[in-house]
Design a protein around this nucleic acid. Structure first.
Lengths: 121, 121
DNA sequence: ACAGCATATGCTTCCTCTGGAATACAGGAC
DNA sequence: GTCCTGTATTCCAGAGGAAGCATATGCTGT
């Protein structure tokens, strides 16, 4: 899994669904079905966009039984880190992203165990 | 010219030629023929990418006689500013962008007058 | 073995983007 | 007016991305 180039990072960032996924991921690892709940989007859409992010090296994935757990990679290039911080900044004022985070917090009780299972948080 | 959305900003940033244009523009306004010299790319390519950036509201343009002078817009959304700063950061270690800036500085003597002509720097 | 759940992968359709060649347009000099 | 220079636009072909449907895979439990 080689580090994404700057262009690849921006390619990942130019789709709203992927921005939402990355925004949620800054709070910790998550699996596909929970992304579905948080974003309210169909499974195939979530899965494909996560696959896109995975292929470009913006997220890492581990399997735990039936669940694929996605997380930001443990080691990130300075470029990726800069852009994730920038995204965090920009997203503060956008309702859609904040609503995602609220739904994520509502799920918290159910997904606490993920942090222990996943080694890439 | 409405402010670009976050997605539109990222759409602009996911092409290398446009990254180079924006990087050069952070140093001041410039016209198409000078972009050609600095980037070493054909006129149609430069013009089209500048047009793309203009349509999305990432650059402003004024005509001065035969020359179209492009510049970063005087008023920028916080999102655009954040991303331009982030870009500046990321670009420090990339030869191609630094080479552009070097060629730009070499052109400086010829283009000093641009700053006075352009009201949008 | 089978059933059921979680996820991924074709496949299709539509749309956008990119680059290049040729051409059009606008302004200045004469 | 004509010519020249600087820039934009049109047209084309190729590539890639997005969404949805259907299907496949992989794991678990029985």
């Amino acid at each position: 899994m080689s580090a994404p180039s700057l262009i690849e990072i921006y390619q990942c960032l130019c789709d709203e669904t992927r921005l939402r996924l990355l925004n949620v991921l800054t709070r910790g690892p998550l699996c596909v079905c929970h992304f579905q709940e948080v974003l309210g989007e169909p499974q195939v859409k979530i899965s494909k966009h996560l696959g896109y992010l995975r292929d470009k090296g913006l997220v890492a994935v581990t399997r735990h039984q039936n669940w694929m757990i996605y997380a930001l990679p443990a080691k990130r290039s300075p470029e990726l880190d800069s852009n994730l911080r920038c995204l965090q900044d920009c997203v503060q004022t956008h309702r859609i992203f904040q609503a995602d985070l609220r739904r994520l917090e509502a799920l918290r009780p159910k997904i606490g165990w993920l942090d222990e299972v996943c080694d890439c948080s």
